Amino acid sequence: MSWPEGIVARPIDMGDAQAWADLLAAREKVDQEGEIYGAEDLIEELDDSRLDPAHDTIGLWADGQMVGYGMVRISETVVDVDRVHTEGTIHPEWRRRGLGTTLMCWLIHRAGELHAAKHPDAVGEVSNGTISTNTGANQLLRSFGFEEARYFIDMKRSLDQPVPDAAPADGFRLQVYGPELDEALRLTHNEVFLDHWGFTPRSVQSWKARHAGSRSFRGGSSYLVLDGETIAAYVLCYEWEADTALTGIRELYIGQVGTRRQYRGRGLARAALAKVLTEAAQAGYQRAGLGVDADNPTGALGLYESLGFTVHSKWITYRLPL
């Protein structure tokens, strides 16, 4: 890959975490995506079983400053399509110099290599997403032939609003997350989300890295609905300290909401969400946030709206066949 003069391109390592965080902070000031990470969060990103940092990441440097990055992740398993996830950005002060185009070429090329190496017998596509208001990113993706594949909605709710009453039905009980339930929860999550677009089952390693073992995970704010010893529904929550430091707003992010198929339609997720929101307000959180697939098959969007969440932004996931 030929990079513009003055640009040094190399893989990202742990020692680059603060420079990477500075790049993302500069992006946030312009793009207003609400995606804010500290150096510790990014170190976790590199420690991902789906990622080989030496080959699947690239940092772009100019005079000792990281001015761009790219990352490619391959799914551990394939359900329908091998969607190779790509991401990246260019520092706002370095845009419109051809860096974004060259970076996208690198991402597509690496995605193709990973697909051929890991899941060659499956249908493959490059996946990339951006907030709908980022005109430059949307135009760049379309110029490479990417097509819109799915829409996701980011929702927010102030926690100074009253929370509707929603107790679980008789026979069910609410319980705060505990590590003794972690493996049962992983298996439940894999079952619940199997009919959701783009989902691939979580291995023990990826579950720990992305969920219960993440530094952002807040087990004390996460609740499960139990039927005896069976997990019927659950709400898992996260907090990004870097986000609070930058915005001054302490937000509890609701990352996963699920109900087993045989328990759907009984208001169990609603009861767990109401408990989470009530406890979050008492714990000093000022806002709750979540993301939802606009075409979610379980009607989640209506549930969140009924609990006071409103649309904050829209995200577009793009696809490019390999």
Rank of each mutant, 00 (worst) to 15 (best):
G258I: 02
G258V: 02
G258E: 00
G258T: 03
G258A: 04
T259S: 04
T259R: 01
R260S: 11
R260I: 10
R260V: 14
R261F: 08
R261C: 05
R261Q: 07
Q262Y: 06
Q262D: 06
Q262P: 09
Y263D: 00
Y263F: 12
R264V: 03
R264E: 02
R264A: 03
R264P: 09
R264Y: 01
G265P: 09
G265R: 08
G265S: 04
R266P: 14
R266K: 15
R266E: 13
R266T: 07
L268K: 00
A269H: 08
R270E: 02
R270L: 05
R270Y: 03
A271H: 01
A272K: 11
A272G: 09
A272P: 06
A272Q: 11
A272E: 04
A272H: 05
L273H: 00
A274R: 06
A274W: 05
A274C: 08
A274S: 11
K275D: 08
K275I: 10
V276S: 02
V276Y: 07
V276W: 03
L277M: 11
L277T: 11
L277W: 08
L277N: 04
L277C: 08
T278M: 05
T278N: 11
A280F: 11
A280V: 09
A280D: 08
A281K: 13
Q282W: 10
Q282S: 15
A283Q: 14
G284L: 15
Y285N: 07
Q286G: 15
Q286H: 15
R287P: 15
R287D: 11
R287W: 12
A288R: 08
G289V: 04
L290V: 11
L290Y: 10
L290C: 06
L290N: 06
G291S: 07
V292F: 00
V292R: 00
V292H: 00
V292Q: 00
D293F: 05
D293Q: 02
A294Y: 14
A294N: 09
A294P: 13
A294Q: 14
D295C: 05
P297H: 01
T298A: 07
T298F: 05
T298W: 07
T298K: 07
T298S: 06
G299Q: 01
G299W: 02
G299T: 02
L301M: 11
L301E: 10
G302Q: 10
G302V: 14
L303R: 01
Y304G: 04
E305C: 12
E305L: 14
E305R: 13
S306G: 05
G308C: 08
F309V: 05
F309I: 05
T310K: 11
H312K: 08
H312R: 15
